[in-house]
Every structure is written in C-alpha cells, then in structure tokens.
C-alpha cells in the first residue's frame, strides 16, 4: 500500500484521517470536530474517567480519549442520545461537589461551567450532595478548594509525570474520593508544591488556584466568555498539532 494513502474512519458520517497510534479523540479534534471532555487535556496522557468523551465505535461505547483510531471504523459522537448522557454526566459532577458559579473566581475560565453551557445544561435534575470537604488555604500562593474538585486527576498525573514531585494523590473510595497532599501534615504548605509547578496550572475547575490572581481578568473577558469551549478547544488542539507535527 502506498504511504500517501492516509487511513481514515467515519465520524458521524464524515471521513476523518488519522495517524497511526492516534486516538479517536485526537483525530476528531485535529479534523476540527469537538468532542466534549473534562478530565482530558491533550498535553497529558488520557485518564478516561469523566466519560464525557464517550462515543459509539462500531456499535459499542468507548471513551474516545483512550480508544485507538482504526481504519474504516464507524464512530458516532454528535447524537441526541450521547449528548443527553454527556449533559447528565455534567449534571452529576455539578451536584456531587459544591459548585457556586456566580461566586466562583474561576467563572468564565472554568471548563465544567463552559461544558455545561456547551451541552445546554439548564438546571440540575439531581439533588445536591452538599459534601463536607476540606479547603486547604495553608499555602501562601496556592489554594486547594476540594469543594470544586471534579476528580479529573490532572494535578495527580501532572505532578507525577511532569513535575516529578507526586504532590497530589487520591484517597478515599467511591463517592468519598478526595485529593490528598503528600506532606507530613497533609497540608500544601508543608509539601514540595511551588507556584511554577505544571500541576497547579491545569485544573479545569476552581479547585486548584493561585492566590491573588482571581480577578486580574474581569468576568466577561475571560476565555469562555469570549468564545465557546467547543471552538476554543478545537483551536487550541489544532495549534498544538501544527506545533508538534507541522
């Protein structure tokens, strides 16, 4: 077979080219098609835990962020059924924690909020859990508000793989799962975290934030105030593709 012939699969009837080893998610985003996602950040290894990026591959559901693209497969993503499930999953995350968008410093830059808008979440169909979770404001520059954590595990993965510090870990199980800090006291201030750590830059929600920076950009001028998350994610992904693969 000639190497010029690019392999493709079908996504909602559109032919999508892919490179060997690419996931369904990466190929779709590179082709300009947004698949909703929260726990995945294309700059880091996928985790497939939020399940928003679930697609139907040849009739079976898979998380597209970890599913390898295979030539000729038939993938469905933008369907009423899947979008309805994505909306419900987003609502589940919203009731599980304590998310007060109007009072949250992250508003406008929050991927959970922006994804909820993108999916058309109007209100929560589920009762609020109102969990009691600890806030860790011990560090002079960084705050960890577990109330807003969606357990995407990005800080855990990045601190381990990129910063090589293992500052963050998960503890508990099931609905009691929370972030735990690696330090003798269990507090951020006693840990090896620093404001330059990659791990503290990528929290999709308002759980891990820099102190003193919350309102530097006024509400109304923030990332997802100016463009919807679907466009922003695709544009960012495509710029990254150009940077890495030309």
């Amino acid at each position: 077979m000639s190497p010029d012939i690019r392999k493709t699969f079908h996504l909602d009837g559109v032919e999508i080219p892919f490179r060997e080893g690419q996931t369904v998610f990466d190929a779709a985003m590179a082709a300009g098609i947004y698949i909703p996602h929260l726990c995945h950040n294309p700059d880091f290894e996928p985790h497939s835990s939020c399940r928003l990026c679930t697609v139907i591959v040849n009739g079976r559901p898979f998380a597209s962020c970890t599913q390898p693209a295979v030539a000729g497969q038939d993938v469905k993503s933008d369907t009423p059924e899947l979008n309805d499930m994505r909306r419900s999953l987003t609502e589940m995350l919203l009731v599980e924690g304590n998310h007060y968008c109007p009072a949250c410093e992250k508003s406008g830059n929050c991927r959970l909020q922006a994804t909820a808008y993108a999916l058309g979440v109007q209100y929560n169909h589920y009762p609020q859990f109102f969990p009691h979770r600890d806030v860790d404001a011990s560090h002079p520059e960084i705050i960890l508000d577990r109330d807003r954590c969606i357990l995407c595990g990005l800080c855990v993965r990045i601190s381990r793989r990129v910063d090589r510090k293992n500052v963050f870990a998960m503890t508990g199980r099931g609905i009691t799962t929370t972030i735990v800090i690696d330090s003798p006291s269990g507090l951020l201030v006693d840990s090896r975290v620093s404001r330059d750590d990659e791990a503290v830059q990528h929290c999709p929600v308002g759980a891990l934030m820099m102190k003193g920076e919350a309102f530097k950009v006024p509400i109304g001028e923030r990332r997802y105030d100016t463009s919807p998350i679907s466009e922003d994610s695709v544009a960012k992904f495509q710029a990254r593709e150009v940077r890495l693969h030309g």
């Binding site: 835990s49 928003l52 999953l89 357990l151 998960m170 199980r173």
Partner: peptide, 10 residues
C-alpha cells in the same frame, strides 16, 4: 464503586 469514573461514582 472505586470512584474513578463519573457515571459509577456519582
């Protein structure tokens, strides 16, 4: 539930 994924945890 191990708590990893949204649909099972919540």
């Amino acid at each position: 539930s191990c708590g990893l994924c949204t649909p099972c945890r919540v």
